[in-house]
Design a protein around this nucleic acid. Structure first.
Length: 893
DNA sequence: TCCGCGACTTGCACCTACGGGA
DNA sequence: TCCCGTAGGTGCAAGTCGCGGA
């Protein structure tokens, strides 16, 4: 699709209309499934089909604002403006002819991240000092550009020098020693993580060698009372002490007393939560506490709590860091931040002691006895047959019922249960209405329950589940993520999944492998007479249990710790550190792939173009897929037909990505890229692979040569986080908290668009918009009437009768003016709300916040601008990102 | 080098509790 | 008090990527 142009100025801080930003390429909407959704009723098992969903009105990837399917126009970069567009048309540096990347220069002067992290919310914020004494990353304006996502460079290329200088300043501020190159430091640090004295090889021994008496949980409950011989803390001399094992010593390691521990922990939490000064920004609370010693803020307490965890993660790490620095004689940042690396590699010890209670199973099926009809006659079904029939019946209002594949797969599996000689011989003659109606009744009853009844049920459920909700990891109580075994059901694959409708059979203890500490009591098997499939003691993995996916036995379903756990937090932090590391390498990586756009070696050419697309468009890597999976693609698996050339230099992408979400985007590219695509498409059929010499392994292997640990995925995190960081720092102005939050949401939205995070339009969206329009119309009528009254009042005349004929009160002009301004404000607010609602109707903001945006950017920004962190992160995110809460306010990604 | 397994992250939809407005 | 809209929690599907064995 052609890029439309307009003379609209680019107003980066005008959030009411982000379409004003320069348009380089646009996404086109093509949601096909919208209409069906209206037919759906609320159903506890309903899923939306998501295929062919449209892209939102979106700036294109990397923050470049795209034009809209609505036909909005916006300025487009002229060809000359393309130069900075990916930062790759600059003269390549002297890397040479190969794709190798020149590594950035190290700087050993800068203080470490580790040093910065010593500051927690518990202490008074120290004035910035050495933070800014390090290398100035903006010494070279090219560095400036390369540290930004492509979009920013594009955007700024259209800006005057003011913008550039703002960016430059912000990067001057970002001169922490994270900027120190990793290549120099990595080897040293890798050594750190490779010490093996903590490995327990026995954990890897074959199943046959696992103690037989511990094979299942039945009758093992006596062991649960046995006090654990394991230490509460992992010794510091353990090389893996960098891991969270030595955190929070407050909880005893007694593995026999999880329950007691839970209760006490709960009490503690409750007390803490009773306090409340959530409205105070973290930064203020830090000051407040520093000055007054007040410890009453609930959030502060949460933060204190999480800081404890954070400290406990980083404390041994710091010790380790000291050692490293001493050893290496370098204060390099990477040495310090590499504390995170030891646990990241596979085969590394993740925990020392692990105690948990296993998993909870869904209740057994209870027959309802409602008879479905076959050829109009009631049919008797066994409980197993009825259970599956009910699964199908309750999906009547979903889009799956429009799909033959779903029905065929269901029929094939159900038929096996029915048996060949069953009276039911085809699905077409089945009428599930009686079961459907019964189910609606059950739902209605549930709805009609009083709050009290609901509360009782909830409490009962809590009581049953509580023991499964927690695990003790190295003596620390951690929440378990998904301790409930998935109930049986019909598989709801997304898009056109070939297995949709297949029966997902019930999982039994005999399907489940439990992973637990060697000395921990084996969880009692909750189903009498059954036993676990296997007990393992593998401390190199983080899962607590797994079973084979009944739909695809090659795959596993795992039970992990919750996102708020230290293990997950640590892994998260590593992820962001890696993305942050890319900032130091990106310039050279871009130079390298730019050179290869004309490489005669076809593999190198393909690697270059693929890397460019991943960098520029934040595409996913694109692993190969089997025939029994939905037909979706990523970068490496793009087909010729997924990319259309639009002369002179535009590429139109159109494919189904992860979750069968449509990716549709037209983008201006550099001419060598355009020509390379032309070359790659030549003599190929539409269904052929565009990158036929490439797969994700090769691509990632290449990326690893450019930066340690670099994979395609890192570019998404990098682009998302750096976009947020830059936008927040460029666009935040003085103002009230509300205005600052709008800035944040705007940046969040841009990131969601870059990552193509979509959501389906709410069923009630149109109705809500109509309501808002009506209200605005009403208010405008009121405004008109007030204006008439004001004119009359100024002339000393009484107001006219109202529209319903009533006599109005005689008001002074001042009062009328005030009323008018209030009404105007209401109208403006409603209009803003409408616009936001419309803008975000297809954009999912949550995914990027949870997975791609380095929380330290957000926390630091909140501290700098006195925005309460709770305005940005909900309770779950606060817990998930506890490790980021004590970041320095000056932190930049 | 390829391939499949295994472990983990990412991602969207559904459900429900809660809060604000009528 | 009820209704409506939504945020947050949950469920589970669908990705990514490292590793080890053939």
């Amino acid at each position: 699709m052609a890029v439309e142009t307009s003379d609209k100025p680019n107003l980066p801080h005008d959030f009411d209309d982000d379409d004003d930003a320069p348009i380089i390429y646009k996404r086109i909407s093509s949601k096909k499934n919208q209409t069906h959704s209206e037919a759906r009723k609320s159903n506890s098992h309903i899923h939306d089909g998501q295929s062919y969903r449209q892209a939102p009105n979106a700036p294109s990837s990397n923050g470049q604002t795209s034009s809209l399917q609505k036909g909005n126009t916006a300025p487009s970069l002229k060809p000359s403006a393309m130069k900075p567009s990916v930062g790759i048309s600059r003269t390549p540096n002297s890397v040479g002819n190969t794709s190798s990347v020149k590594l950035p220069v190290a700087n050993s002067k800068s203080p470490s991240l580790g040093d910065k992290q010593k500051m927690s919310v518990d202490v008074k914020v120290e004035p910035k000092s050495t933070e800014h004494s390090g290398k100035n990353f903006c010494e070279d304006s090219e560095d400036d550009e390369d540290d930004k996502p492509l979009s920013f460079r594009l955007k700024n290329s259209n800006h005057d020098n003011k913008v550039t200088s703002v960016v430059k300043k912000s990067y001057e501020d970002s001169d922490d020693d994270d900027d120190v190159p990793l290549a120099k430091k990595l080897p040293r640090n890798l050594n750190l993580g490779t010490t093996s004295n903590n490995h327990e090889d026995s954990d890897k021994k074959p199943i046959s060698k696992i103690q037989k008496d511990r094979q299942n949980g039945s009758g093992m409950s006596n062991k649960q009372d046995r006090p654990s011989p394991l230490p509460a803390k992992r010794p510091l001399d353990n090389s893996n002490s960098l891991q969270p094992s030595v955190k929070k010593p407050k909880v005893s390691a007694s593995d026999a007393s999880i329950k007691t521990e839970l209760v006490s922990e709960k009490r503690e939490l409750k007390t803490e939560d009773d306090d409340d000064d959530d409205h105070i920004p973290i930064s203020q609370r830090i000051k407040k506490q520093g000055m007054t010693g007040d410890k009453s803020s609930s959030t502060k307490k949460v933060l204190q709590k999480v800081t404890k965890v954070n400290k406990s993660i980083s404390k041994p790490f710091k010790k380790q860091t000291k050692k490293i620095v001493k050893k290496s004689g370098s204060g390099s940042e990477y040495s310090k931040s590499s504390k995170l690396l030891p646990s990241s590699g596979d085969g590394q010890k993740k925990w020392t002691t692990l105690v948990h209670n296993g998993v909870i199973f869904p209740p057994p099926y209870q027959q309802h006895g409602v008879k479905m009809l076959y050829k109009g006659r009631p049919v008797d079904l066994t409980p197993e047959q009825e259970e599956v029939a009910t699964m199908y019946a309750v999906m009547r209002d979903t889009e799956y019922m429009q799909k033959d594949k779903f029905k065929d797969n269901f029929w094939n599996d159900w038929r096996k249960l029915l048996g060949r000689n069953h009276v039911i011989q085809n699905l077409k003659d089945c009428d599930f209405t009686p079961i459907y109606d019964w189910y609606q009744g059950v739902k209605d009853k549930k709805k009609q329950m009083t709050t009290e009844e609901k509360k009782i049920l909830k409490e009962e459920k809590m009581k049953q589940e509580e023991k499964y909700m927690w695990a003790m990891v190295d003596g620390v109580k951690e929440k378990v993520g998904n301790f409930r075994v998935e109930p049986p059901g019909l598989f709801r694959g997304r898009g056109e999944h070939p297995k949709m409708g297949k029966l997902k059979k019930r999982i039994h203890p005999g399907d489940i492998t439990i992973n637990i500490g060697k000395d921990a009591p084996i969880p009692e098997c909750p189903i009498p007479g059954e036993r676990w499939k296997e007990i393992r003691h593998d401390n190199t993995v983080t899962w607590l249990a797994y079973w084979s996916d009944p739909i695809n036995p090659k795959l596993f379903k795992y039970v992990f710790l919750a996102a708020s756990s230290s293990l997950k937090g640590q892994s998260d932090k590593e992820k962001y550190e890696k993305a942050r590391m890319l900032k130091d390498y990106i310039e050279n990586i871009r130079s390298a792939y730019t050179k290869d756009f004309t490489n005669k070696d076809i593999t190198k050419l393909q690697i270059a173009v693929a890397t460019y697309l991943i960098d520029k468009l934040a595409l996913r890597a694109g692993n190969e897929k089997d025939d029994d999976e939905a037909d979706t693609v990523g970068c490496c698996t793009l087909k010729v037909e997924n990319v259309t050339r639009e002369p002179p230099n535009k590429l139109k992408f159109n494919f189904l990505g992860k979750d069968s979400i449509k990716y549709e985007n037209t983008v201006e590219v550099e001419l060598p890229v355009y020509n390379a695509i032309l070359k790659l498409q030549k003599d190929k059929r539409p269904g052929d692979d565009l990158f036929d010499k490439l797969d994700t392994s090769k691509l990632n292997a290449h990326l690893k040569e450019l930066m340690p640990g670099l994979t395609a995925k890192v570019f998404r995190t990098f682009n998302a986080s750096i976009t947020l960081d830059n936008m927040l720092n460029q666009e935040t102005k003085d103002g009230d908290v509300g205005e600052k939050i709008v800035v944040y949401q705007h940046a969040n939205k841009q990131v969601a668009i870059i990552c193509n995070h979509q959501r389906s339009v709410s069923k009630s969206h149109d109705a809500q918009m109509s309501k808002l329009t009506e209200k605005i119309d009403e208010l405008q009528a009121v405004l008109k009437e007030l204006k008439t009254d004001l004119d009359r009042a100024r002339k000393g005349k009484p107001p006219l009768k109202s529209s319903d004929g009533k006599t109005k009160k005689n008001l002074t002009p001042e009062v009328l003016e005030k009323k008018m301004s209030q009404t105007n404000a209401k109208i403006e607010k409603m209009q803003r709300d409408m616009k936001t609602k419309e803008d975000l109707k297809t954009v999912a903001l949550g995914t990027s916040k949870i997975n791609y945006l380095d929380p330290r950017i957000t926390v630091a920004w909140c501290k700098r601008h006195e925005v309460p962190i709770e305005k940005i992160f909900n309770k779950s995110l606060l817990a998930k990102f506890c490790w980021a809460m004590d970041v320095d306010p000056d932190f930049r990604f």
